[in-house]
Each structure stands twice: as structure tokens, then as C-alpha cells.
């Protein structure tokens, strides 16, 4: 029983990790960021490359991946998204283009393959990030087997969720972000620098994706296409939870994660996937704006 719940909890944490950044960029800014998965992928590659060239372990790679992905997010916001606020379908297309460019950058080793130069850790192949053995070896505690790596992911996710909550609801910048979410024109009229705050918010959401990438690299495969699967899960969670609601995102990640975990243990993973999608469709039909959504004016 505990094990089933633990699997569900672990799935929840992975979903939440991916959706947290997305709920901020999508919720706060109305940008359908198809490149979110690629930012996760960039985070994973940051971990792989910093491990090879700088000797960083996973703990050092986390802040580095946050910075890399955040800076990249800032760049994407400045170059592409800034011009497209309020045009939600256009952001979808534009960020999808960005996603393809990022994938190809990694696959073509930043274009170096054309000159016959190989960069270890890049390219179309599969990469790996080393995980310290004390995070891999499970141990028994009171008759229950503890998996340190999964536990580590859960802890980091809780930490990041609390941090995000604190930033959004207990700081002045958070108040500004929430004001922009409700009504950007009115926020601007009240003296909020909408452009600057939006850029910072997008960078923060991207940075969270980077951290998710590092943690995923520890137990999934690192490859240029890894982001594509991830982004679908992220959108599921955000849409079910309700756009722009942190609580909704947390609860919907919990709901979908546990549902997936329980059904996949009792039946199998393929049925679990189908059940999750059925529930998502049901929830969207029942509450088109998701479980938790504020009334927008």
C-alpha cells in the first residue's frame, strides 16, 4: 500500500516539477510555451555537460541549470514572445519553432558537426548524467524501502513549490505578477512595469524547467527529443488545475499522479495512461476552466 502511494507521490512530484514553470508562464502571461519541454531538455544537458567538463555533481548542476534555462528563457522572451502578448495562437506557433531550433542546436552540436568537430555530451545520441551511488542505493527503514533518488525529487519539488508560493503571495513582485495576471492594462496604469515583470516571470518559469531537467536526467534518458513528451504532461496538469492557480496545479498534479500510480500498479501502465486522459477529458467537460480558476474580468 505504502509503495503504491509512494509511486503515485513520485509521479506527482515529477508532474508538478514540470507543470510549476508552465503554470507560471501560461497562467501569468497567457503564453502557450511549447518550448517548455525543450527548456527541461536544456536543463538536462546542462547537467550532462557540467558533469563532463566541470566535474559538477547533481547538486551543483541544479543552480547552474536554473541559471542557464532562466537566461535562455529571458532571451526567448525578449526576442520572440514580447512581440506576441495577447496573441495566444501565435505564441503557440512561435514557441514551437523555438522548440525545434533548440532541439536541432543540441542534435547538430551547435552546428559544429558541419565542420567535423565533435562535442562530447551533445549530438543526436543518448547521454547520461551520473548520479552519486548514495542516491541510488535504496535502504530499509521500519520495514519500508526508501528510494533516495525519488525521495530527493519529492523534497526538491516541495521546496520549489513553497518557494514559488512565497514569491507569488508574500513578496511585492508577486503582487505585481498577480495584478498582471488579472488585468495587464490596469496593472500598467497603476505604475507596474509590465514588460520587466513579465520578462522576469518568464525567466523564473524557464529556470524551474531547467531544474526539472536535471532531476529527470537522473532516471530518464537524456536525448534531444526528451522534451516533447514532457510538455504534454505539463499542459495536462495546468489545464486540469486551472490556469494561473498554484493550488490548482499542485492538486491536479497530485490527482493525476496518484491516479496514474494506482492504476498502473493494479492493472498496467497503458491502461493507466488511458484512464488519466479519460479523467482529464471529463474534468475539462465538467469545469472548462479547470478545478480552480478565478473569475477573469
Amino acid at each position: 500500500m505504502f509503495e503504491t502511494l509512494f509511486i503515485g507521490l513520485s509521479l506527482t512530484s515529477v508532474l508538478l516539477l514540470i507543470a510549476l514553470g508552465l503554470s507560471i508562464t501560461y497562467g501569468a502571461m497567457g503564453v502557450i510555451n511549447m518550448a517548455h519541454g525543450e527548456l527541461v531538455m536544456i536543463g538536462a544537458y546542462t547537467a550532462v555537460l557540467s558533469g563532463i567538463y566541470l566535474g559538477f555533481n547533481i547538486f551543483a548542476a541544479i543552480p547552474l541549470a536554473f541559471l542557464t534555462a532562466a537566461l535562455l528563457g529571458l532571451l526567448i522572451e525578449r526576442v520572440v514572445i514580447r512581440k506576441l502578448y495577447g496573441r495566444i495562437i501565435d505564441t503557440l506557433l512561435a514557441t514551437w519553432g523555438v522548440a525545434i531550433i533548440l532541439q536541432q542546436l543540441i542534435r547538430l552540436e551547435f552546428g559544429m558537426t558541419f565542420f567535423g568537430i565533435r562535442i562530447q555530451g551533445l549530438g543526436p545520441g543518448l547521454q547520461q548524467m551520473r548520479v552519486p551511488s548514495y542516491l541510488m542505493q535504496p535502504y530499509e527503514f521500519a520495514g519500508i524501502m526508501i528510494q533516495p533518488y525519488r525521495t530527493f525529487i519529492i523534497l526538491v519539488t516541495i521546496l520549489l513549490t513553497v518557494l514559488t508560493w512565497f514569491l507569488m503571495y508574500r513578496t511585492s513582485i508577486g503582487v505585481q505578477v498577480r495584478a498582471i495576471m488579472r488585468n495587464p492594462q490596469m496593472a500598467a496604469a497603476c505604475g507596474i512595469d509590465v514588460r520587466r515583470v513579465s520578462a522576469m516571470t518568464f525567466a523564473y518559469g524557464s529556470g524551474l524547467a531547467g531544474i526539472a531537467g536535471v532531476l529527470l536526467a537522473g532516471f530518464r534518458t537524456v536525448m534531444p527529443e526528451m522534451g516533447a513528451n514532457v510538455v504534454v504532461d505539463g499542459f495536462l496538469v495546468v489545464v486540469v488545475g486551472g490556469v494561473g492557480s498554484l493550488l490548482g496545479t499542485v492538486l491536479s498534479a497530485g490527482l493525476l499522479g496518484q491516479l496514474n500510480g494506482i492504476v498502473s500498479v493494479v492493472y498496467n501502465d497503458i491502461i493507466a495512461r488511458a484512464v488519466v486522459f479519460a479523467v482529464v477529458i471529463g474534468i475539462i467537460l465538467w469545469r472548462p476552466n479547470g478545478l480552480f480558476s478565478f473569475k477573469s474580468r
Binding site: 515529477v14 530518464r220 498502473s264 500498479v265 498496467n268 497503458i270 493507466a272
Partner: peptide
């Protein structure tokens, strides 16, 4: 005799089974 879709990367439940 169990199957997972191609490219599946979440093995927690299967390994537990």
C-alpha cells in the same frame, strides 16, 4: 507478460510489479 508503450520512461510501477 507485460508491455509498455514505445519510449515509455516511467518504470516505477512496472518494476514494483
Amino acid at each position: 507478460d507485460e508491455y509498455l508503450e514505445l519510449g515509455h520512461s516511467e518504470w516505477g510501477a512496472m518494476v514494483s510489479r
